[in-house]
Amino acid sequence: MSIDKELREELRQAADSMHCPPDLYERVHQSYQHFVKEKRGRSPMKKRLLAGIAAVAILIPSAVYASSYLADGIFGSSAAIEKIGGSKEEYQEIEGFLKTAKAKLTEDEFKEYMELTKQLMQLKMKITDKNGIRDEGKLTKEEQQQWEQLATKLAPLFEKITATETAKP
């Protein structure tokens, strides 16, 4: 018999007499469960960590803003509105309105509202002179379109703010 053949046969015979101990199953099973737990545990942990970082990133600037006027987010400061013939009282009025808006709208809606209002106000400030007189002819065609878009987007939000205000007893 050639050594190749003999080797094959002996290894086969020896293999048949080798049996994986049954209690090894429990051990492999345990490490498998550990693997599954680790795999499942890992992704929610990452998500939580990311959510935590995002929350901190949002909280820090909003904490800074909270101490200042909401209206500052739109006009920069009351000085800007004074330039176009507004007064500090009017500025306070706007501020009051924004505060109701913040209370009535959800966080995302309010963010959108602030952003849209800011854009609209910038356009308004552009066409208003020192005495508070508006001249819409100053707008370019694109700016007019933008104005209209902003107005249509703002309308439902605006309605929501005023509606909930009147609905309040």
Binding site: L11, A14, A15, M18, H19, C20, L24, Y25, V28, H29, Y32
Partner: peptide, 18 residues
């Protein structure tokens, strides 16, 4: 897991034991 273990464990065990 059980199925994969059943299908492979003897082969893995014997290879290592050699």
């Amino acid at each position: 897991f059980q199925l994969v273990y059943q299908a492979t464990h003897q082969d893995v065990y014997r290879t290592v034991a050699f």
